[in-house]
Write a protein that binds this DNA or RNA. Structure first.
Lengths: 147, 147
DNA sequence: ATTACTGCAAAGGATTTGCATGTGA
DNA sequence: TCACATGCAAATCCTTTGCAGTAAT
């Protein structure tokens, strides 16, 4: 029942070591690469950033590190528009995904509490509304289509 | 400006022919296979059902038919839990996806109008809330975890 | 008679895995 | 020291594509 917010941006080396795993230069670079991106970052972006600093790092290592971080809860992985996007675990927020230009906007305020309560009461379903991907049209594309 | 509801369960052969495409036994079997499943059906399920009736039908044909039906608006394709699920286009509804047992429940009633209005007003984002995949825990898994 | 559609096989791309080597604790 | 992690290469999985033959209209 602890009201623990420490999973947001915690001292990650300790968290890794505490579970008996190891902090390696590769993992640090990969985590850095995710931090550099604002919000969601694709595998290719991460890999490119890592390679710019350490060309010897292998794709397989990046795949394994991403899985590793996800299992530890350090990052989130979300399916957005067919591709997997990774981001540092932080405050719950949602994504407005434009189906036209593909842009992804973060939505930090939200009005989901009523919805969540409704789903639990009437359907017995405990919704985890942390990282919802909401499809639609962004303001720019909306105007472009209407005109 | 037509108030046309005919895209739900319309006479599909006519719809296909009207656009200059052809109604083939393969396409009929594949569409049948999607109808047989309640809601979302994976590629493998569809392929297995088709093969049971006509073993000669090729995977490539199934892939092409699914794309074809999707472009015609006869079916929907949704990313659910890493896999693509297909279903007959019908009334807009949502999916409650249990992250524990993987079960997908349909949600036909919904309270998304306020949310939609809010997103448009404050973010200029026209949300298309037709087939939202809402992650969480179903009632069964919820009880199992709590106990 | 057209020309869309199918089956086959091969190509393609993304991710995973086995194994020997290297390295953090 | 010793188990975890890495790099490499091969394997695997899923999906797409080119092409020659088939069939719907």
């Amino acid at each position: 029942m602890e009201q623990d917010m420490s999973h947001y941006r915690m001292n990650y080396p300790d968290r890794i070591r505490k579970r008996g795993f190891r902090v390696t230069p590769q993992r640090q670079l990969i985590l850095d690469a995710i931090c550099e991106g604002e919000g969601h970052t694709t595998f290719d972006e991460i890999y490119a950033r890592v390679q710019a600093k350490a060309p010897a790092i292998n794709r397989a290592t990046v795949y394994r590190a991403l899985d590793f971080f996800r299992e530890l809860g350090l990052i989130f992985a979300a399916e957005i528009g067919g591709h997997t996007g990774y981001e540092i675990a932080s405050k719950p927020h949602h994504h407005l995904v434009c189906r036209c230009c593909g842009k992804v906007e973060d939505l930090t305020d939200y009005h989901f509490h009523d919805l969540s309560a409704h789903l639990l009461e009437e359907h017995g379903f405990k919704a985890e509304l942390d990282h919802l991907a909401i499809p639609g049209l962004c303001s720019k594309c909306l105007k472009a289509i209407e005109s």
